[in-house]
Computed example of a mutant assay.
Amino acid sequence: MDTISATELVTASRADAFVAAAEAAAYKPLSGLQQVFEDAVVTRIGNAHYITVPLAGTNMAEMTKVVYVYDGKATTTVEFAAAVVDAAHARLQMWQDGVSIKDVELYDPALESATSGQSAIVQTGFSWSKLNKCLCPTRASPRGCSA
């Protein structure tokens, strides 16, 4: 039976040290967005530390970030850039260590016809299950999905 490690929030000077190391890595987001290191969050799961740095300049901030994963030996950098393009389209791009691993555009024609005549971009109708199916079409759940 697998043991699931608890997530621990890392705070104070320990978190500051991890954030400073992430900033010193000088990673330039391939999305062209800016990292907001002052809003970074550091967590630990098992032996790995996750430094999650939000990216500014998108309309889907909750899914747009750079995550530095440090396992005690090496650091892996994963960037997620998501945006609502219009009422019926959203796009998610992912890079790992500077290499594109996913570029998915979601389209729901029902939303396009339901919102015709509207000029504002809205997030209404975004579907996590559709996004997960696009990212990992052979699994019922994205957990454990490999690229």
Rank of each mutant, 00 (worst) to 15 (best):
G72V: 01
T138N: 14
I121R: 08
I51H: 06
A74T: 12
I121M: 04
T77I: 14
A26V: 04
T76W: 00
P109F: 03
M60N: 12
H89V: 02
E79S: 09
P142V: 13
T138Y: 15
D2F: 00
A15Q: 04
L131H: 01
C136A: 05
A110T: 08
S141T: 10
F37W: 04
P137H: 08
Y70G: 05
S113V: 12
V85I: 15
K102I: 06
D108A: 13
M94W: 00
R143V: 15
C134D: 15
D86K: 11
A25M: 09
V53W: 04
A82V: 05
A147D: 13
G125Y: 04
E8P: 03
R14H: 12
L30A: 08
S127F: 02
W95D: 00
W95K: 07
P137K: 13
P109R: 12
A90W: 14
V84A: 15
S5E: 14
L106W: 04
L55G: 03
A40M: 08
G32N: 02
S113E: 10
A114R: 09
V67L: 09
V10M: 06
E62F: 15
F37S: 03
V104H: 07
A40C: 05
P142R: 08
H49G: 06
D71R: 03
P109K: 12
L33Q: 01
A147Y: 06
